[in-house]
C-alpha cells in the first residue's frame, strides 16, 4: 500500500478564457491533515470540485488510493472514499439532523425498494444500524441533542458540524473540508480544530481548504499554496510560512 492517498497529476481546468487551474500536481499522504490555501479566486474550490467529480478537468487527473478517479461521477467519488463539505453549507434543510446523517449512510448500505416494501429482516436490521451509526456520529460532533430538529433550524456552527457528520457517515478515507471555519468565532474555531484533530486520530485523512492561515498553519502537517490557479509551493507549514512567493501572493506585492 502506497504512502500517498491522493495524487493530483497536472490537473487543469479553464472556464472560457480564464485558467482556473494550471497543471496542479500535489499529493496527500495517508493520515495527514493537508491544508490547501491561497487568496480568493486562487482555484481552491475549483480543485475540490474537480476532485469530487462536480467538474470535469480539462487536463490531468487524480489517482486515489492507487486507482484513477473517474471524472464527472460525484457519487463514485463518495463511494471510493472521498467525502466533502461545502463552502456555503449544503444540508438537506427540511430533513432532521439525524436524517441528514442517515442519508450519508446511503453509499455504505444496500437496502432497495423490494426490501423496504416487504420490510424484510435484513432491511430492518440495516435500518436500525443506519440509525445507530447516525446517532453515534451526531454524538461525535456533539449535536446529538439536535437530532430531531430540521437542519435548516440549526445554528450556523451546528450546521457546519452536521455537514461534517454527514460526510463522515460515508466512511471516507479522505475528508475534504471547504472553509469550515468561515464565519466562526474564536471559541468555535478552537472546537472545530479539536474536532478535526480527533477525526485524523481516528484514522481519516483530512484535506482542509481554509482562509484562516493561523488555523491551517497550526493544524496541518503539510500545506499547499495556490495562486492564480497554479501551485506555488507544497511543504510543511514552517517552510511555507517563510516562502517569499507565498508572502507576495498574500500581500499582493
Amino acid at each position: 500500500m502506497s504512502d500517498v492517498l491522493l495524487a493530483a497529476n497536472a490537473v487543469a481546468k479553464h472556464f472560457g478564457g480564464v485558467k482556473a487551474l494550471r497543471d496542479v500536481s500535489l499529493s496527500i499522504r495517508r493520515g495527514e491533515i493537508y491544508g490547501l490555501i491561497g487568496p480568493n479566486g486562487a482555484g481552491k474550490t475549483t480543485f475540490f470540485n474537480c476532485m469530487t467529480g462536480l467538474y470535469i478537468p480539462d487536463g490531468g487527473g487524480f489517482v486515489f488510493d492507487g486507482q484513477p478517479l473517474k471524472a464527472d461521477a460525484p457519487h463514485q467519488a463518495a463511494e471510493r472514499g472521498i467525502a466533502r463539505t461545502f463552502q456555503n453549507i449544503r444540508l438537506f434543510g427540511n430533513m432532521t439532523a439525524l436524517e441528514n446523517v442517515m442519508v450519508g449512510r446511503h453509499v455504505r448500505t444496500a437496502a432497495g425498494v423490494v426490501g423496504a416494501m416487504l420490510q424484510s429482516k435484513a432491511t430492518r436490521a440495516e435500518e436500525a444500524a443506519i440509525r445507530q451509526k447516525a446517532m453515534e456520529l451526531l454524538h461525535y460532533v456533539r449535536i446529538e441533542d439536535r437530532a430531531d430538529d430540521l437542519a435548516k433550524n440549526l445554528s450556523y456552527g451546528d450546521q457546519r458540524r452536521l455537514e461534517i457528520a454527514r460526510a463522515l457517515a460515508t466512511e471516507p478515507k479522505l475528508l475534504c473540508l471547504d472553509e469550515p471555519a468561515a464565519g466562526m468565532n474564536a471559541t468555535e474555531t478552537g472546537e472545530l480544530r479539536a474536532l478535526i484533530e480527533g477525526i485524523r486520530q481516528d484514522g481519516t485523512t483530512v484535506l482542509l481548504i481554509e482562509h484562516d492561515v493561523k488555523l491551517v498553519m497550526g493544524l496541518c502537517d503539510r500545506v499547499a499554496v495556490l495562486d492564480y490557479g497554479a501551485l506555488v509551493i507544497e511543504d510543511v507549514p514552517a517552510v511555507v510560512q517563510k516562502d517569499q512567493r507565498v508572502i507576495e501572493a498574500y500581500l499582493g506585492a
Binding site: P74, H75, A77, F86, F92, H106, V107, R166
Partner: peptide
C-alpha cells in the same frame, strides 16, 4: 432538497 449535496454523499 439539494441534488448536488445528494451527489456528494454518494447517491447516484
Amino acid at each position: 432538497e439539494d441534488e448536488i449535496a445528494a451527489k456528494a454523499v454518494g447517491i447516484n
